[in-house]
């Protein structure tokens, strides 16, 4: 590592911000890709990879991606749930790499849910 100046400290911090967002919380949006057997068989893996690539290319650090099991509607897999802080979660269905990229641009970045791919808004009733 070269000798640092006071300004460099902040730069290093910025550079690693994305990873520490994962560890400390404080993210703006969370995408859950449903990776049950059904999801994986229907191509959830490609959806996930495409999404990770998009996030990396956009260079943003406040969106986290996580996986979860089958969402229950196996017929419409791959499914993904997009949660923006302070907005109800939106479930998308029948996804592929192209669709998730569009969702990333429109919903996650611009804040407008993509109605044509959306399945439902909100959560199921929980006890």
């Amino acid at each position: 590592m070269p000798r640092l100046t006071v300004g460099d400290l902040q730069k290093i911090k910025e550079k690693h911000k994305a990873e520490f967002t994962l560890r400390e919380g404080g993210y703006r949006a969370k995408v859950t890709v449903h990776m049950g057997t059904c999801g994986i068989a229907a191509g959830a893996r490609e959806v996930m990879t495409a999404l990770l690539d998009e996030i990396a290319n956009a260079g943003i650090d406040d969106v986290i991606v996580t996986t979860s099991g089958c969402a229950g509607l196996c017929a419409r897999e791959p499914l993904a749930t997009v949660e923006i802080i302070n907005a109800p979660p939106v479930k998308y269905c029948d996804l592929n790499a192209e669709k998730i990229k569009e969702i990333f641009r429109e919903h996650i970045m611009a804040g407008n849910p993509v109605e044509k791919y959306a399945l439902v808004v909100g959560c199921e009733t929980m006890y």
């Binding site: 006071v6 400290l9 290093i12 911090k13 911000k17 520490f20």
Partner: peptide
């Protein structure tokens, strides 16, 4: 449990050495 103690970048990313910089400048 939040940083790798063998990497100085990780300490710096958690506001490390900011206080030293403040004290010295």
């Amino acid at each position: 449990g939040l940083i790798d103690p063998e990497k100085i970048e990780e300490y710096i990313s958690r506001d490390g050495y900011q206080a030293a910089a403040k004290a010295l400048t």
